[in-house]
């Protein structure tokens, strides 16, 4: 299977091409100034890898995409690209949780990967986090947008927090007080493009045309509106848009 992996959920741009039958893998090489440049760098990166591999877009079987949570704008850049490629070729879109990828990427370099539970975490400001519990060999648990303290109370014994270097300073003291550990990953190591492609082999496919990222959080405007309109339902976006 020929798989393109795309992750633009954070500050680092992760793009890779994997041929699962031959094991051939090419990845975009990280540069120092990648943050906030995904919209400019992602397509040249994909094009360069496709040329290197000698593939045409019609040969792609799957596109593995980190579906969220993460930077809202970042998620949309990757999703717009993945959706359009999938919509215009034979490739299937395969979304994978960003948090799951953070946990699995950390597990790659763990000394006891088969016993450790990881707590992948993304800082969502105001002492809130996007976080989940990733037990060995189990599906992701409790994935959501949490006040950090609430999430901490759910953390299993001996589990290890994983977050991008420089994004978890507000939480370190509480983590240590709770008797837990943390791993700070350099941004280019937070998500492994090859592992993402491999996850794409087994993860469930999604309908590319209707796909939306897993933001795990409504906008402030919508939350305020829903508070005033409790009967309006869960804010099904689609019904608010129509063709003219």
């Amino acid at each position: 299977m020929k798989i393109l992996s795309i992750d633009t959920s954070g500050s680092s741009l992760n793009v890779g091409l994997l041929d699962s039958s031959t094991g051939l893998f090419f990845a975009h090489e990280h540069t120092k100034d990648e943050a906030r440049t995904h919209s400019m760098k992602i397509l040249p990166a994909i094009q360069a890898l496709m040329t290197k591999a000698g593939w045409s877009f019609d040969q792609l079987d799957r596109i593995a995409l980190t579906a969220g949570p993460g930077s809202f704008t970042g998620l949309r850049i990757g999703a717009a690209v993945a959706k359009m490629i999938a919509g215009q070729t034979f490739a299937e879109l395969v979304p994978v949780s960003t948090l799951e990828m953070i946990a699995l990427s950390a597990r790659l370099s763990a000394t006891d990967p088969n016993t450790t539970s990881y707590l992948p975490m993304i800082n969502a400001r105001n002492h809130n986090v996007f976080a989940a519990i990733c037990r060995p060999g189990k599906p992701l648990d409790d994935e959501g947008h949490w006040p950090f303290t609430d999430f901490l109370s759910k953390a299993p014994k001996n589990s290890i927090f994983v977050f991008e270097q420089g994004t978890g300073d507000d939480f370190k003291a509480e983590i240590q007080t709770a008797g837990l550990k943390f791993i700070e990953q350099p941004s280019e190591k937070l998500i492994d493009a090859k592992l993402l492609a491999q996850q794409g082999l087994s993860a469930a496919r999604a309908d590319a045309d209707s796909f939306a990222p897993r933001y795990l959080r409504k906008t402030a405007a919508e939350m305020a509106w829903l508070k005033k309109h409790p009967d309006a339902g869960d804010g099904d976006y689609a019904k608010y848009v129509s063709e003219v």
Binding site: F72, R76, A80, A212, T219, A221, E222, H229
Partner: peptide
């Protein structure tokens, strides 16, 4: 609903409709 365009909501809608 909000009395004007909310940019984050607009971006989400665009992504949902672009392929269609």
């Amino acid at each position: 609903r909000f009395g004007g365009i909310v940019p984050e909501v607009a971006s989400r809608h665009h992504l949902e409709w672009i392929n269609r």
